[in-house]
Write a protein that binds this DNA or RNA. Structure first.
Lengths: 213, 213, 213, 213
DNA sequence: TATGAATGAGCATTCATTCAT
DNA sequence: GATGAATGAATGCTCATTCAT
């Protein structure tokens, strides 16, 4: 829409890249909201205002477009790994409760992929992605035995919160904020990731003791 | 009674009730595995070895068949509420980790419905069902404040475990058993549902993760 | 519904004939209202409360049932030929404006057949029937030359009135009665069937001078 | 432009407007001959030599295609209203006896619509169209009382002639020409539309035909 | 290369009809 | 013979994809 006067003399010059990017962006939104099989190539093209055949020209197939869109989602999800390792759990929660994910229609990348996970290949990709971003990184935070299982259980919790918010649209969780969830979160973090020795006795302090303020 | 997709060779007995039940059973399996839109009426009929038009004769429409299949799933899920209330949490976990759900292709009823939750009406039905079976009943177990939120967080965990096992097929959680999970489960139950005794320190600060662009 | 006690001991005895007649009656109603292709065999059977397969057992095919129903319609239409020949035109009009045709859902037999006249064989049958009941018999009433053409034009008028009332449901004609139409009818009868010599001059008296009262 | 069903051999030109017009033309022919429900979208496409899905691409639905075809028919029928009002009746007759209606398979537009008048919405549309083109315009020509009823009776006659020619395919009327019908037509026009000069005698009595049972 | 017209396989659904009991 | 379960060919319609220009 924002066409600068300079684009007029060579309208075909950069349009390929611009259109391609626009299609990709529209695809991320549609796939995130409606899933792979629920998304119509023609609708993506309409979002951009071009003909559907461009999708095939630029990406080869609906599936290739989906894969590329998913890769971008995955990259976005991984960004949470940047930062101090000790604060990873709460950063993970923040990406679920606070971040908007505008590129994927407000859906967390994992929810977006989950919407298409009926397909085996997509499921496998989601599985890899969840390992890389959730389980493996959390596993390294675990103090004590059974690190893999406890990390998986913690990942399940995060994923479940996303699903309940975005897919099921549970009222309580949809309204939940970092502030309201934090106290419970802390206790679960301790329960799952903390030193697993003490039974029902007093909980150990929150995992991130170096609180900035 | 439980007709699996492989049973295509058996000659039909020309018995309305038997055929109807077989179609319903096949439908539960297919819908659970492939979701509503991913399931083909013809395939369900083939699973049973009859013509697809019988689906419409006996159920009226693909959607009505789905609704009936879902109702049976929901009923099956609710059965967990029978029994001593104090043991509800671990009964819930057992339905996830130990019960086979043979009628829905090994999928927990909620996962089966989740596979079709792109559809708004189905999503709403799943939401109701989750409230009835998970959130509301768990909420009554909570000792302390914030019962709704804590019940929702606990429901999210259960749902997340199911999703990670069935949809994502996470190796660790797929192999998990009641025995291996029990110690961690107990700690989380205590953390989320037990008397909230205000952790020794303040809540973790709202983390500010670098939001991906 | 009105089952006499005697029918109980041999319930299969006359039921064949009774059921057959009931199916035929229901068929006349349905075919008249919805046309041949618009009528569902199953619905006819439901009207009677029996299974659709009886239609095939008793009549052979939907088409044979239609033919038999049409034959009864035709017979009913022909009944108008009984009576004094000179009053035929007004008797014809009366069957259109006054008679209820309860056996064919209130539709004049010719309208009932017309609803199915897309089919060539049905069209031919209707053509025959119209000749026998309308054109040929009217032709004999014509005084003067061009009897066939004038009879055909008069038949067209009668048929047109039926169509405008029943098919198009024109308000004015639907409300028309013998009394309101009679004066105009008389003039047209004279114009089309009367001695064709006199041009715009005075009309000759009504065709049926031997008025009973 | 007028694509007849036989034109299946012509290779398509990949021109949207041409193909769309060809589909519309083929649809007018098929709908006129076979009625709405008797017409198959695939057949229309075959007439033009393209795939059936183009019908949905260009028109949205079978019904929308029918509506567009009907609108063209209606427009064609209304053209008769152009010209001197006093000659309207004979112009109306001429469109029935002399004009070929090549766009609607030789069927008068009203007959074409009548073939689909089982459908309520189509019947209502036909009713409107008949009023606009026949009844209302004729009503204005009537000298004397009862204008509406007499106009309706005259419309009925015109429609009846069309039906007898096209639907019933009555031999006599099919061969009729303006020349052969004109003298009778004039007399009927005078009888129905002319100054009503109260026939010399009383109206014929309401005849009591033996109603068929 | 870019455009958009055209394709064809596939889906839910209907309905006259057949066939096993 | 009577019953009703089962059939299969259509039908309107959708959608990813290809092909001509």
């Amino acid at each position: 829409m924002t066409v600068t006067p300079g684009d007029r003399e060579a309208p075909r010059k950069r349009n390929r890249e611009v259109t391609r990017a626009a299609l990709l962006a529209a695809a991320r939104v549609r796939f995130a909201r409606e899933g792979y099989s629920g998304t119509n190539v023609r609708v993506i093209a309409q979002d951009v205002g071009v003909d559907a055949s461009l999708v095939f020209r630029y990406f080869g197939s609906k599936r290739a477009l989906f894969d590329e869109a998913s890769a971008e989602n995955a990259l976005a999800a991984e960004a949470v790994l940047d930062g101090p390792a000790e604060q990873l759990p709460s950063r993970l929660l923040a990406t679920i409760l606070e971040y908007d994910w505008p590129e994927s229609a407000g859906e967390h990348p994992f929810v977006a992929m989950l919407r298409s996970a009926n397909d085996d290949a997509i499921r496998a990709e989601l599985s890899d992605q969840l390992c890389k971003t959730y389980t493996d990184s959390i596993s390294r935070q675990v103090r004590g035995e059974d690190a893999d299982l406890r990390a998986a259980l913690f990942s399940a919790w995060l994923l479940g919160i996303s699903v309940l918010r975005s897919v099921v649209r549970d009222d309580t969780l949809s309204r939940a904020t970092m502030a309201s969830v934090a106290p419970h979160f802390e206790r679960v973090v301790e329960a799952l990731l903390g030193e697993a020795k003490a039974g029902p006795a007093g909980a150990t302090p929150a995992p991130g003791p170096e609180q900035p303020d």
